[in-house]
Design a protein around this nucleic acid. Sequence first.
DNA 1: CATTAAAAAAATGTATACAAAAAAAGAAAA
DNA 2: TTTTCTTTTTTTGTATACATTTTTTTAATG
Lengths: 224, 224
Amino acid sequence: MESKNTLQEQAYQFIKTKIVNLGFKPGEFIIDIQIAESLDISRTPVREAFRMLEREGLLVYEPKHGWKVYSLTLKDIHEIFEIKINLEAFLARKAAKCTDDILRKKLEHTLNEMRKAADAEDVDAWVVLDQDLHKLIFIMADNQRALNYIENLNDQWNRLRVGFSARTGRITRSIIEHEKIVNAILAGDADEAEKETKDHLVLVRDELTSLLINMVLPYAKDGV
Amino acid sequence: MESKNTLQEQAYQFIKTKIVNLGFKPGEFIIDIQIAESLDISRTPVREAFRMLEREGLLVYEPKHGWKVYSLTLKDIHEIFEIKINLEAFLARKAAKCTDDILRKKLEHTLNEMRKAADAEDVDAWVVLDQDLHKLIFIMADNQRALNYIENLNDQWNRLRVGFSARTGRITRSIIEHEKIVNAILAGDADEAEKETKDHLVLVRDELTSLLINMVLPYAKDGV
DNA sequence: CATTAAAAAAATGTATACAAAAAAAGAAAA
DNA sequence: TTTTCTTTTTTTGTATACATTTTTTTAATG
């Protein structure tokens, strides 16, 4: 969220925002000079930004052809969640063994905040807290690389989040799932933490899959 | 391995090779213009190559400072193998359920070739076959993203492979470990495939850790 | 001799020019 | 009308110039 003052960073933020908000459509080719002109900068920083976004899987480079906004398929969702389910379940298991009281307190606090946001039906706040909570669990698990990778996987499908978390009942159910995970971690029950994380992610995956089938595929023939 | 004819690709291959062969030392800052001059090209393609290598975790960009060859610590090895152990064990489990006979035949064949290479003490051939074998398992597991990520993790520590696989007894022992994994997969025994993969990677991690402690740390104070 | 200040050198960040390649548009032939 | 070929336009790939920032060197001061 922090906006560094280099033009590369500006270009990066601009393009990423447009992709996430579907201003650039999945499968669309984007052209450096056009973005450069609309930001009133040169091509150079835009191309650097392209490489950064390629790194995150939001853009795909096709040599001698150009830069394409990555288009998620159902297979992608399946792959992404297969990895997420495994890694996050393992990290939850590890987090259950974490003895850092500050982190444990924070975890409890974040869950409470989530409850409040859910009661207030504040979807935006809830989304942020949801991310905070998962991040906290990963920090407790003490594997920075895994955290980075999962955040990267999330970047790849978060485009769909717009239509997802606002769905009826999703947040209410999600609170219950998160409570189970957090309680297991705080109780130091690694097996339970692993199991509840898996269950939670399977539900997310399945809802996301049906969302992709019902809402998005009709107008995006190559996926999202 | 394929060398595309763009200068970016040349620069990319050149830098990567130097990093892997320790021609550029871990922690060293590398400067675009110097590489550009030694390749007799301009800075532009070199900078594109930098971004590609950043993507692979071989270079780290420090804003307003420059590009640093990433330096592995023991914590990195621990993180990398924690992820590898989890993901690869899961993929081996999935591979055990693969029914594609062509892939299964290939797997058996690759193991045989590895045995031959080991008998002939052909380390170079063995390294290639080892990578082929693991890749085959991942292909059987049918998760392209996980495959890519594991290959990326491997890129990060393969620099150490030079001194690693040549160690006395490592290959002989490794053959046995690989046989167990392959046999479990071919027998369709998912539990066993998962277990043997974990055991194998734990051994690799531990040997790598001791290598890092004994050989490399003395002269590379920030790790490798 | 150590510390700070100023000047010089080097490296990054950006813009722009131009050649080569690809895509698009238009013209000619079937 | 469709197909093929040519021309034009667009876009990529690369080089280079230059401003800004950072680092190093040198000079001055205590």
